[in-house]
Amino acid sequence: MLTFTIRRLVLAIPTLLFISLVIFLLLELAPGDPMAQVPLTVPPEVKEKMREALGLGQPVHIRFWKWIVQFFWIEPQVLIDHYFGTAFSEGKLRVISWQTRSPVMDIVVQRIPQTLWVVGTAYVVAIIIALPIGIYSAYRQYSWFDQLGTFVSMVGFSVPPFFSGVLVIVIFSVQLGWFPSIYDTTHVVNSWDSFVYQLKQMIMPVMVLALQITAQLSRFMRASMLDNLNQDYVRTARAKGLSEYVVVMVHVLRNSMIPVVTVIALGIPSIFGGAIITEQVFKVNGIGQLLIGALQANDLPMVQTLTFIFAVLIVLFNLIADVLYGILDPRIRYD
């Protein structure tokens, strides 16, 4: 198991390098000019100097190498400096955003908590809702509850977040006026009232995201439970007189959870991607919105770094899912 994990970790490095190269080359084709906003009165030789100050003067492979060094070598040093008060990164050039002329990672670190709060809560809520629904619909297959569950998850699959989000805004903010339609990230929780306000503003984005995740997870849970409910060991467990609760909730559930846990792990990065739209609808200023803003402002270092962070998340959670599979299911051993 350990050798498998190490092998996969080593394999992940060329994958990530390749992905970063793809993203870099794609951005290299960008027609946008970071100097487009500079007034025409600025003489061309000054423009050329500004261009070099942004690091645009060198050929492609050198800039790619510089980006790699900055991202993988200098940024971790900044992190170490931040935690331990050392000075490894002093005077070294970090990845600089063209929009704000400040380090990209600083902005990302500012934005991540908002995304994590909303997306993380949504994921937890979705898991809490989806698992019981999946278990019960499998246990009572083709009952009205199961049919309803199938329909609701079909709807969850089909209604895109940019419609369900807008729809809940129409109903709950415009018509009923219960919840604020815009997520206020500057809100500080320091009393009961402000806590209630925080809850209120989180309900809508969390529910919109959770609907989608619940739809997928409950289907998966149901299918996995159905696979196990007809197995011989279930009949054995019933025959030796175990109570129905123990049979379903202990014997079947534990075996059914194996694929579901890996699906949960695999879904985490796609949630970050899918949250781009939800963040846009509810004006949450998380990393999804940062990406959209950077795209519109032609801020290539920011786009490059953010897209790469998403890629790292995907590769990382794929790895986690594979390892989890091996740990949870003793029949699967990779070596």
Binding site: L27, L29, A30, L291, V303, T307, F310, I314
Partner: peptide
């Protein structure tokens, strides 16, 4: 195929839309 599956698709789509 695995490499393509590991790409962050929605951000890349957005980037492609902007560039081309």
């Amino acid at each position: 195929t695995d490499l393509f599956l590991a790409l962050p698709l929605l951000p890349l789509l957005l980037v492609m839309m902007l560039l081309f």
